[in-house]
Amino acid sequence: MKAKEVRAARAEAGAGEERPALDEADRALIEALQDDLAAVPRPFAPVAARCGLSEEEVLARIRRLLGAGVIRRFGATLKHYEVGLVANAMVVWRVEPERLEEVGTRLASFPAVSHCYARATTPEWPYNLYTMIHGRDRRECVRTAEEMAAAAGVKEYQLLFTVRELKKEKLRYQVQRPGEVGGEG
């Protein structure tokens, strides 16, 4: 029963998430874009030089990859504690499966929420919805979670406060040609 729901949800999560077709130039561009853009007047010029494309072609392909969802967004990512949001918590929610879509959408609409996912459950861990919330201190996180619980009508939830960041690293993607076997990361 539960497994079926998870499969159904996963199929839904997977819908439209198949790998778009990428050509050789896309792969070269994706490789070049793993590094940060430089703070120079023409920051796309070195990227273009690296993958043997023109600057215009690089920009056109970035737009296309954005449209295809391969690039989720393009721009700066800030360190959140440096903008004054020092407390954060992963709030885990236990939601009736038939309300998951509605509750997930509702909770995601809160500005304090940066991430919201439905996840598989295990016998030891029945929570099926996850939100990352950010605030100036822990009290603010608790208040936010209370508001979210009231708005979504969910009673069973827990705040798991971040005590320490132990690793935060960007993954370097290795983009294989279709059919190629994934190598060791």
Partner: peptide
Amino acid sequence: CRRVERWQKSGLVRRLGAVFDSRRLGY
């Protein structure tokens, strides 16, 4: 450019560029 470079060095700007959807790259 000067400010962006300073923020990149100080770590305030943690990343600058493309954020990929790992699923669509087969991950």
